[in-house]
Design a protein around this nucleic acid. Structure first.
Lengths: 198, 198
DNA sequence: GTCTATATCCAGATAGAC
DNA sequence: GTCTATCTGGATATAGAC
């Protein structure tokens, strides 16, 4: 049974993770301050150190939650794939929606990427995150019957993942420079180019 | 005429910009410290404030130099374009070489991108940088006769730029996950998809 | 313009009451 | 587990000698 104490602690933990996501996204890992996160979560600085060993662990715990939420969402939508056009649509719309309505997610991923490159031990976690996304894409591509062999599906997944992030980079800094339809178009080009009509 | 004093100052300025590039790449904007940059440049902390108004201006001056060096390099190589395959090769090899031999450039661009998103006034500079790269790509695409209309060339440029950065993101965090030949392949797919053989 | 020395501030993290 | 109060270190930036 879960006691009321543990419920309260669980709530401050969640509040801290939410606040951490917001503040780390706004100021980056090094630029974010522990007191500010505590303030935004409505708790004291000390409360952070009662729940996490420090700034680093708070950041990693927050990122892990973001990553897992994304993985769960992908699992759900991957099950619904049927044909090529629907796959194309699904791959693109979930990402463009994220970029436009939840840009913080993209900022956090970029921050996490930089953090991992600068702290090699955590490099692997980001590598796994990207690989997981690719594996999911590849499975959907095979599932939709776009291409028969898994090898080519994997290489298509690499390409799709690349354009997705590159699109976000361009769009977030200048939304007039690129539109969601251009991402659809590009992925369509890739699928056409990779699977030329006989 | 340039006096010896100005030469010496010019040299410390250059040394500071070099050191800034290295330290900002290693630790990010917020994570880098002014004393560390001064140390790496072999000068005192005070020398930085004699040449720049502070950390921010030093960072922006350093980034401006990086951006301009890249623009000059693009101008040079854009003049050499002839046919489609050579264009494909050129677009890809200069970038894969940068990613593999000078990853700091990529890190600095990512850092600058985040900095701009968090400091909207400077947003425009990054937007212009990306737009300049795209314009250069588009011109080369038209020049190589890949496609006649400038509009489609522009959209292809968006796609190529996106895959280039997305490729770097995947490769830097896990070099086994993606190879330079995959970037060539992807851009080839894009060109095929965008310009279907009649 | 460059140095040494320093002022000021705020970060991350801890101690101890409750 | 959470608070208040505090320790300690290092940050940005400046002052003044050379």
């Amino acid at each position: 049974m879960v006691g009321i104490r543990q419920q309260r602690q669980q709530r401050t933990r969640e509040a801290l993770l939410d606040a951490a996501a917001s503040v780390f996204a706004s100021h980056g890992y090094a630029g974010a301050s522990v007191p500010q996160i505590a303030h935004e979560a409505g708790v004291s600085t000390g409360a952070i150190y009662a729940n996490f060993t420090g700034k680093q662990e708070l950041f990693l715990a927050m990122m892990r939650r973001v990553v897992e939420a994304g993985a769960a969402a992908r699992q759900r939508s991957a099950a619904e794939t049927t044909d090529r056009d629907e796959l194309l649509n699904r791959m693109v719309t979930t990402w463009t929606a994220t970029v436009d309505t939840a840009p913080d997610i993209v900022l956090l991923m970029a921050e996490f990427w930089l953090y991992a490159l600068r702290n090699p031990p955590h490099n692997e976690l980001v590598a796994e995150l990207l690989a997981d996304v690719r594996a999911n894409l590849a499975a959907s591509i095979v599932g939709a019957g776009v291409v028969p062999d898994a090898d080519r599906a994997g290489r298509i997944a690499v390409a799709v993942q690349a354009v997705a992030y590159g699109y976000a980079m361009q769009r977030l800094v200048d939304e007039d420079a690129v539109s969601p339809t251009q991402l659809v178009e590009t992925v369509d080009w890739i699928l056409r180019g990779a699977v030329p009509a006989r």
